Amino acid sequence: MGRIVDLMSQPGNLRYAIAKGFEPAVRGFLWQLVRLRRPRFLFLGRGIKFVSAYNLRLGAHVAIGGYSYIETSAKTPVIFGDNVTLREHAWVQCRSGLNPKGDGLELQRGVYIGPNAVIGVSGKIVIKAGCQIGAGVSFSAESHEFLDGSYTTGATARKGITVGENCWFGNNVTVLDGVEIGAGSVVGAGSVVTKPLPAGCVAVGAPARIIRYTGAHQTEEPV
């Protein structure tokens, strides 16, 4: 208790705590109250736009940063598990206009995703428990098909994306459709992941290639 009192007595700390904790908690409480949901310590930043929130399932202690766009009209419920953090200016889209709905999104317990994330849900996206993902990540669970001599016909394929438990991504990582990343892997900043990665690997570059292993979950030799 003494430590908390000491911190709050320092200039600016109280205002910071109110802006980052109290105000988002009040917004979260009111958001749940209006929608007749049981309060579960939800923290919401300013200016968030929800679309199809009826299909969003929230665990306890979820935090969504300000000025995010959360569109959740998927075929299956969109799930943010306990202690999930989605930072400011996130963009989540499960449907584009009246095109077919996406297959769903699941952010499991303790997932952290930094600011300016882009999550395009066509195929299902699953990010498993404990993943820590830097700012500017892009997940695109759809690929345009080459048809009649062009990629602009609107023909698409949807395979989905899965990220295993306790993975770590640097800033500005892009993950393309059909990718599965094994548990405990590390993906370096600015990498573009175009194909599956085994558990426990360290991958960097565009396209991402394995440079070594962390020692946990190792299944293959680096290439």
Rank of each mutant, 00 (worst) to 15 (best):
A208H: 02
L7T: 11
G123V: 04
R212D: 13
Y67A: 12
A216G: 09
P115I: 14
V193H: 01
I125E: 01
N99Y: 10
S68F: 08
G123H: 01
E88L: 11
L176I: 13
S140A: 14
V111E: 06
G205F: 08
S143G: 15
D103W: 05
F43H: 04
R3N: 13
N166V: 06
A60S: 12
G2H: 12
Y213L: 06
I70Y: 07
R57Q: 08
E180D: 14
A129W: 08
F139P: 02
S9N: 15
K75F: 06
G200E: 03
C201N: 02
A216Q: 15
G164M: 01
K124H: 09
P222E: 15
V92P: 03
L147M: 14
M8V: 07
A141R: 00
R158S: 09
L30V: 14
P207I: 13
A60Y: 13
V84H: 00
V92Q: 01
A183M: 09
G190E: 04
G136H: 01
W91C: 11
L30K: 10
A199S: 06
T219P: 02
V192L: 05
V192N: 00
F29H: 07
A117P: 07
G136W: 02
Y69E: 15
D148Q: 15
R158C: 05
N99C: 08
L197N: 00
L42R: 04
E165T: 11
V202C: 03
G12T: 08
I210D: 04
K75A: 10
I64V: 10
I161W: 01
I210K: 03
Y69Q: 13
R109N: 14
L14T: 08
E106Q: 12
